[in-house]
C-alpha cells in the first residue's frame, strides 16, 4: 500500500513539474499565440491581426548586436522576399533592453533596418512582454505561426548552419513553410542553434 502511495506521489509530482516547466518556457508546438501590439521602426504600432491576408507568420526574435543575428540577416531578408508573396511574411522583433544592450536601441534599430534594407517590420519589444510569452531565449529565435488558429508550427533555427550561410545543407524554416503551404506535415518542428541570450536590465 505504501509503495502504491509513493508511486502515485511520484507520478503526481512528475506531472506537476512537467506542466510548470512547460508554462514557464512559453509556447510549445501547437499552442495558440496571443496577439501583440509592438512599435515598428516607422513609429507605428503593429499587430498580427493587421495582416488580413496572411496565411501565417515567420516571427524572428533578432537584434542588431548579436553576431549570430548579423550572420542571419541576409537569410531573414531572403525569407521575407520569398514567402511574403506566398502569405508568410517575416515579422522581426528585437527583445533586448537597450540599457543592457545599447547597440539594440530603437534608434539603432531604425539605422540598421535602413542600412540593410529590411523589407519586413522590425518591432521593438520595449516592455519585454512579448518575448517571454513566446519563450524566446536568444537571438535569432524563430517561431512559425499559422494564421488559421494562430498556432505555433515550428520553433528554432533558420537552417542547419547558423553561423556560416555557405555551409547550409538543410533549410529548416523554408522546409516548414513549404510543408504548411502544401498541407504536408512538418518533418522538423523544433531545432536548436547557438544564439545570444536576451538582454534584460
Amino acid at each position: 500500500m505504501k509503495k502504491i502511495h509513493s508511486v502515485a506521489l511520484i507520478i503526481i509530482f512528475a506531472l506537476v513539474t512537467a506542466f510548470t516547466v512547460n508554462s514557464a518556457k512559453g509556447y510549445s508546438i501547437g499552442d495558440s499565440v496571443e496577439d501583440f501590439s509592438l512599435v515598428n521602426i516607422d513609429d507605428k504600432m503593429v499587430s498580427l491581426s493587421d495582416f488580413h491576408n496572411a496565411k501565417g507568420f515567420i516571427i524572428v526574435f533578432t537584434c542588431n548586436h548579436c553576431p549570430y543575428s548579423i550572420a542571419n540577416e541576409d537569410r531573414i531578408i531572403a525569407l521575407d522576399k520569398k514567402y511574403k508573396p506566398l502569405g508568410y511574411p517575416v515579422i522581426a522583433i528585437n527583445p533586448n533592453d537597450p540599457v543592457a544592450s545599447p547597440e539594440d536601441s530603437f534608434e539603432k534599430m531604425k539605422i540598421r533596418a535602413h542600412d540593410k534594407g529590411f523589407t519586413f517590420p522590425y518591432l521593438f519589444d520595449k516592455k519585454q512582454t512579448a518575448y517571454p510569452k513566446f519563450g524566446a531565449t536568444k537571438t535569432p529565435h524563430v517561431f512559425i505561426v499559422s494564421a488559421n488558429e494562430m498556432k505555433v508550427e515550428y520553433i528554432g533555427a533558420i537552417d542547419n548552419s547558423s553561423r556560416d550561410a555557405s555551409k547550409v545543407t538543410e533549410k529548416y524554416v523554408e522546409n516548414a513553410v513549404d510543408a504548411l503551404l502544401t498541407n504536408n506535415a512538418i518533418t522538423k518542428k523544433e531545432t536548436r542553434a547557438i544564439g545570444c541570450s536576451i538582454k534584460k536590465q
Binding site: 531565449t137 536548436r192 542553434a193 547557438i194 544564439g195
Partner: peptide, 17 residues
Amino acid sequence: IDEDTWIKAIDANWTGA
C-alpha cells in the same frame, strides 16, 4: 556546424543561448 544535434545532446533543455 551541426548545432541542432550537439546542443540537444549536451542538454535536452538547452535552447542554445
